[in-house]
Design a protein around this nucleic acid. Structure first.
Lengths: 182, 182
DNA sequence: GAATATTGTTCTGTATAATGAACAATAATA
DNA sequence: TATTATTGTTCATTATACAGAACAATATTC
């Protein structure tokens, strides 16, 4: 999948979502219709300013044009994390994971529906995923270590192998943290 | 702040993080040194393929180059439209927060019972907390910006001032991420 | 010490992205 | 119906991002 075709899909998706015509978006963004047309056609190689103008006209951050559901998983081996808990009046909290010195952790809210298995391909070295189940039952993890998890469960696993997500209940909601070490 | 200067900073930041020289990155990415040099100097207007090549050589997703200085406050409601949804697979996910350059992020699972307000003193300078509500209703945040949140809601707020947590329902469960700048 | 890489910068030719007009095709007027 | 916008596409020309070489300024080697 070439980056240009990804952008092409993204722009078209966001434009239709915003219910704008190609011409309208072009004039709003201040770029030529032809430019936008070719772009959505998957041709060319847009410049940063062009992309910026389009994203601004769509009223979305530029990064939205680069987020594809499937390509965002990365991998490493995870070490065990210390687990501490503190008990307080009316509040009890458990440390799920403390952060290694310089790593990137992006948060996702994920909804799953039963009946389908979501496969995620392996990504680069040094990525770990953290999953926290908020609602429902879920089976997830790397192929060789699938775990069944219930509400409140926390699971941390290396993602340098293919892994998958599957809802075991009707609907499931979880927080997924993707971690890339520095 | 022009998009080019933002990219300039981002590339330079990521390159030093990866401990690569400008020349090394250029050859690794397959772009001319001059191109990269001008880019980091804040001049020019890079094309998508150029950015893609650089991001690949740095082994990071493209969106990392577009981290815009964001405000500390952000709420994403549970019913807001998913941006990264892929309807086919029965999975839909929403990016709640991407990670700034080098910060520490620790995860806590928190249970709250109604009837008590948990006051938290100010943390160290520029600490930010992310709260994701898994179950129940909660009122939380800094004194001057308390928010009522329901299941699936996400709230980010500065925690270097006094802040509090209170369950509005019988029981509440949430994921709390404490973020300390590197 | 001299010799040799390697650093990042500043040039010029060339490839190409962006433009704007002309275009056919559909939708919206009267 | 004819008329008038508006749709998205395909060409020209122009502007410019890219590559590559030459460059000075450090590092690194012998």
């Amino acid at each position: 999948m070439t980056p240009v075709s990804l952008i092409a899909q993204a722009i078209q998706r966001e434009r239709t979502r915003a219910k704008m015509s190609l011409s309208a978006l072009a004039s709003q963004a201040g770029v030529a219709k032809s430019t936008l047309s070719q772009l959505e056609g998957g041709q060319g190689n847009p410049s940063l300013e062009t992309l910026w103008a389009i994203a601004s006209a769509l009223n979305i951050p530029l990064s939205f044009l680069f987020e594809t559901p499937k390509s965002d998983f990365r991998i490493i081996r995870a070490d065990e994390e210390d687990q501490l808990s503190s008990d307080l009046s009316g509040l009890s909290s458990t440390l799920l994971a403390d952060c290694p010195k310089s790593c990137r952790r992006d948060f996702y809210r994920v909804y799953l529906k039963s009946g389908s298995v979501r496969e995620a391909a392996a990504h680069t070295q040094s990525t770990v995923e953290h999953a926290f189940i908020c609602r429902g039952k879920v089976r997830l993890g790397p192929e060789d270590n699938l775990q069944e998890l219930s509400e409140g469960d926390y699971f941390r696993y290396p993602a340098d192998v293919k892994h998958s997500y599957e809802a075991l209940s009707d609907k499931a909601m979880l927080v997924l943290i993707m971690e890339n070490p520095g």
